[in-house]
Amino acid sequence: MVDLSQYLPILLFLAVALGLSSAFVFLPMLVGRLTGSHKPDPEKLSEYECGFPAFEDPRSQFDVRFYLVAILFIIFDLEAAFLFPWSVSLGEIGWAGWTTMMIFIFELVLGLIYAWKKGALDWE
C-alpha cells in the first residue's frame, strides 16, 4: 500500500469541484423555490423559442468517418503515452533507448504520411 497523504491536494480539488458544481445546479433551484418564482405550468414547460419538439429518435446512425477519427486519435494518443516513460528514463537507457524510440516514432510517421496522402485527415 502506498502513502496516500500526497494525494490530499487532489482530493481537496475534487471536493471543491464537486461542491461548486452542485452549488451551481441546486442553488438556483433552492432560490427559485424560496423566492416564490417556481410556479411551473404546461406553457412554461413546453419547448419554445430555443427548442422544438423532437421529430425523430436522437440515436440516429453515425457516419463511419467518426470511427476513423477515433482510431487515429487512439494511435497517436498511445504514441504520446509511450513518450512519458521514455523521457523520464532517458538518462539510464542512453542512446540505445533513444534509438528505440526514434524507430517507433518513424513507424508511426510512416502511418501519418500515409493518412495525410490518402486524405484521411481531411473531413471532406
Binding site: Y67, L68, I71, L72, I75, L78, E79, F82, P85, W86, S87, V88, S89, L90, E92, I93, A96, G97, T100, M101, I103, F104, E107, L108, L110, G111, Y114, A115, K118, A120
Partner: peptide, 29 residues
C-alpha cells in the same frame, strides 16, 4: 521502472507494438 525495461530489454515487443499500431492505422484508413 517501466521506461528502463520497455526501451531496452523489451525492445522487440515495443517495436512490434509500433508496427501493430501502424497496421491498425492503415487498416482503418
Amino acid at each position: 521502472a517501466i521506461g528502463q525495461l520497455l526501451y531496452t530489454r523489451y525492445i522487440f515487443l515495443f517495436e512490434a507494438a509500433g508496427l501493430i499500431l501502424l497496421v491498425a492505422m492503415i487498416g482503418a484508413i
